[in-house]
Computed example of a mutant assay.
Amino acid sequence: MIESKPRVLIVDDERSNINILGNLLVPEFDVLVATDGPTALARAAGEMRPDLILLDVIMPGMDGHEVCRRLKDDPETHDIPVIFISAMSEEDDEATGLKIGAVDYVTKPFAPAILKMRIRTHVELKRLRDHWQRLSTVDGLTQVANRRAFDDALAGAWRCGIRQQQPLALILADVDHFKAYNDHHGHAAGDQCLKTVASLMSSQVKRACDLVARYGGEEFVCLMPGVEIDGARLIAQRMCDAVRGHRMAHEHPDVDGLVSVSLGVAAIVPDTGFSPEHLLAQADQRLYEAKRAGRNRVCAGELGEPFGPPVGDLS
């Protein structure tokens, strides 16, 4: 796989400065440009998120210091390294820039070769941090998100749902008779089964904001911001059909011959009167209903709708 070129956002209100920096960085880097603070913030948080920002200090309206503060206050842009490039060369100016979160401070006029080396260094460090961050949030076996990543995503989606009053849906899935599968086929086959189920479930979600994660053991979860119960039920049914349609053999004598999953679905417009745990508990109850009803099926309901009494463990 060919790694994409690093992306650098140049923020400066002077076109001549943008041209100088752009000519220095192309073709080694993909270059984005902003001539004011609000545009810089929008592009930093956009789909083409930069690996590094070169930021002028003195700009009309919102100055570079305020841009940097807002970048560092936003979880979406907090980790993007910022290098200030400024004609302000006093020691206090540099100290201020570093104190509010910049990784470096370069004064004008600068030596192009030295600046380029500094940019390379900070981009390489950023990508290394991103790599280790990804490893810390990905399940080592199935390569979907792990429990830590899901917990963080659920908390963030819940806060966003409260602010925007948009629905939040959750699917909780469990591989049917997985203990029997492990006992009969062996743990190596069990691991492969979980990998396959994770891949099949992931293939049914298309939006970048949807998250499929391994919740624990043979349980998986899918978080879908902005989706109501009917849409989530449809996705869950597709997941159920995809696993069954893959026709993985389950040869334990007490099972009907194929691996399947049971899925519980819940949805809510987040509200301060509830918590993410309420949504999880509702999805878990719906999952138990699906198990009790015969497995290999979907059971769904809005948060607050009645459901049957709790049941014992149904693997």
Rank of each mutant, 00 (worst) to 15 (best):
Gly312Met: 07
His131Glu: 09
Lys99His: 10
Asp130Ser: 11
Ser315His: 11
His184Ile: 01
Leu71Met: 08
Ile171Pro: 00
Ala45Phe: 09
Gly161Trp: 03
Gly304Cys: 01
Leu98Phe: 08
Arg214Ala: 04
Ala281Cys: 08
Leu135Cys: 07
Leu303Tyr: 10
Ser89Pro: 02
Gly161Met: 06
Leu170Met: 11
Ala180Met: 08
Ala173Cys: 10
Asp36Pro: 01
Asp93His: 15
Thr121Gln: 12
Leu223Asp: 06
Asp174Pro: 03
Gln237Thr: 03
Thr196Glu: 06
Pro38Thr: 11
Leu32Ile: 10
Arg292Asn: 10
Met88Gly: 07
Val26Ala: 13
Pro112Phe: 12
Gly301His: 10
Pro27Asp: 09
Arg214Lys: 03
Ile229Ala: 05
Ala188Gln: 08
Asp13Cys: 04
Leu54Met: 12
Ala180Lys: 03
Val205Pro: 00
Lys206Ile: 14
Arg120Phe: 09
Gly97Ala: 08
Leu263Lys: 01
Asp174Glu: 01
Glu302Ala: 11
Met201Ile: 14
Tyr288Thr: 13
Ala283Ile: 13
Tyr288Phe: 10
Cys240Trp: 02
Ala157Met: 08
Ile80Asn: 06
Ser260Glu: 06
Glu277Met: 14
Asp74Ser: 13
Arg69Thr: 12
Val31Arg: 06
Glu90Asp: 14
Gly161Thr: 04
Leu24Phe: 03
Leu303Trp: 09
Ser4Pro: 08
Asp139Ser: 03
Lys195Ile: 15
Asn296Phe: 09
Val67Tyr: 02
Gly231Met: 12
Gly186Asn: 06
Asp139Ile: 06
Ser199Arg: 02
Gly226Asp: 04
